[in-house]
Design a binder for these strands. Structure first.
Lengths: 337, 337
DNA sequence: CATCGGATGCGTAACGTTGTACGAAGTCTG
DNA sequence: CAGACTTCGTACAACGTTACGCATCCGATG
């Protein structure tokens, strides 16, 4: 049932119709070399006539680039990451790139696959927001696809990186609660094991307490498996069930904070009167939570553009010196504190 | 500073090291033709030794497939779509595909670009959740990349499609409110112009009213520009400012509903006592809203898998008969009604 | 013992694009 | 007006992979 015409329309067909060579067609398209106005018009016409569309794979093979970058992250459905995808897709388009989304879902094997597994030529670069990558794993990396790390700094590793000063952000959040007169401040969201952002935030939390002369109470800390609503809700319930006195909660994620507020409300506690809550990330959902959530947040636009620019720079020059960018953070004060 | 070795490691280099032909290397990798155990081992070893990784572009060019599908939707940061990306990325991986995310941001030109603009060979197929595509636009489509439409049915168009019966869903939502004893039911979220889901929902809303013998009151309807929190909040404010009596709101989106609840709370109205609220989509955020949001929702897993299966079927056989799938919907009753 | 045939492996030719080296005009300059 | 330079086009050879048609080797069979 194949049609009698060549199965695909290529430069060759266009060239025939326009009575020029394939090279000329290519030059008209790329503007790579000058083509006289008349031939250019003829080629344009032929392209239109045949509805010619360049073949991406062939062009990639030839040019050794795909125009696609991968964004690898734990879960798109987590709003913080969804916003990241949103911003990055938009920024990437402005720079002539498209975005392939890869989900690791927190699985170590998937994170490894991101670093080692992608075929050559599939993407020009990777922006990777890891959860549990160690420095060692990273240095064993064999693939040479340019990569930029996001959020979680791999200490001492020789990689481009964009993120916040998590210790300072956590300290500021905690200090904000202290400034509101709170003394019994819980912390929700540390994660075990990984050298990730969790421990850094815990450091900041404890530093702020120390500076205010407030003793650290381990009973006020709850680890969570992940960073969803449900984790926050359960963690808060656990805190309340422990019977330990508390008048504020610092959550490592807005989602955790919103989950925590859910539990507080359902137990009849008033926010912020009984318990003040502060989150992290400034997702849109927080603005419409009950009450609107105070949050400490990095400059997200800066993260997106820095990451992309770093990656593009790295693609252009693999030998460029490694750069690590720290973006500033601010506290968005709303009604929950 | 180039190394003296060939710039790229290809089947050719592997073949040399393993003292076989490139074809054999290819066969070892693809399992396409039998290779004796001993040669297979030798090839495997050489692959390992050189850290050979197939070149995606070259393979694509040869096989005329890319293993990538595009998911085109308005905005990833809208939770409903974020969940869609999440589910689709996961489902696609199970079937050997990766997902490229394209954002139209509601711009007609972008929607056109999705249908016409993608280069051949970039993606094997497209799953497209449009906002304002008309049947006419669609039929002028020239590109031949397989496509499946999501959510918004283009009436009479000859395309694979997956969605819900929006009229019935809206009617059920409205009927649910009526069953709760409400009579003054507002509707938030219709959109002007487009032949999209908005008008369909309005039809369902009015049908349910009619069946219950409740007269339709135009002052109870508010259009919104988009479907974000802020639109819902503003629409609710406008309704209240109109001074028209109301005891329930049907929102065309959970985000609108959560925005509306925000306004209701800030005006001191109790939910559901003073005003009951029902949304659409069942996003995670609704479970943790104050109060938890009742919502009418399609079977989202079914949408994802149907869309993907339809697309894969279409890729395999472009001549397959067009199929349109309607997935069932249910009402998730929570505290807001 | 000659021949057949299954099991393996190889050489070659694409896939559709673009860069390079070259040629054939036309245009300027002294 | 000769030479040199510019302008525009062309032919050819890759980019790295896989499908196709053959060639070869071996044991088995008549």
């Amino acid at each position: 049932m194949r049609s009698s015409r060549p199965s695909q329309i290529g430069v060759r067909e266009v060239a025939n119709l326009a009575r020029v060579s394939p090279t000329t067609v290519s030059n008209v398209l790329s503007g790579n070399r000058p083509v006289s106005a008349t031939t250019r018009e003829r080629v344009r016409w032929a392209i239109e006539e045949l509805d010619y569309r360049p073949n991406h794979s062939a062009r990639n093979l030839r040019l050794q680039r795909s125009g696609i970058i991968a964004l690898a992250l734990p879960e798109v459905r987590v709003p913080y990451f969804a916003e990241l995808v949103h911003d990055l897709v938009r920024a990437a388009r402005d720079r002539g790139y498209r975005v392939l989304v890869e989900q690791t879902e927190g699985r170590t094997e998937s994170e490894h696959a991101v670093m080692h597994g992608l075929d050559r030529g599939m993407v020009d670069g990777i922006i990777f927001s890891p959860l549990g990558i160690t420095r060692e794993t990273f240095e064993r990396r064999r693939g040479s696809t340019p990569i930029v790390l996001l959020g979680e700094r791999i200490l001492g590793a020789d990689v481009d990186y964009v993120g916040t000063d998590n210790v300072a952000a956590a300290a500021d959040a905690t200090a904000h609660l202290i400034a509101r007169g709170r003394r019994r401040i819980a912390a929700i969201g540390d994660q075990r094991g990984t050298g990730g952002t969790g421990p850094q935030r815990t450091r900041g939390y404890r530093r702020a307490l120390r500076r205010a002369g407030i003793p650290y109470d381990a009973r006020l800390t709850v680890r969570t498996a992940t960073y969803h609503h449900s984790d926050g809700a359960e963690a808060m319930a656990e805190l309340l069930d422990r019977g330990v006195e508390l008048d504020a909660v610092y959550c490592y994620t807005d989602l955790l904070a919103i989950g925590a507020m859910h539990t507080l409300r359902s137990r009849g506690l008033r926010i912020p009167d009984d318990v003040a809550v502060i989150g992290t990330d400034d997702i849109d959902e927080g603005r419409y939570a009950a009450p609107p959530l105070t949050t400490v947040t990095p400059d997200k636009a800066a993260i997106t553009t820095s990451a992309l620019d770093l990656l593009i720079r790295r693609i252009a020059d693999p030998e460029a010196p490694v750069r690590q960018v720290l973006v500033p953070h601010t506290i968005e004060v709303r009604d929950s504190t």
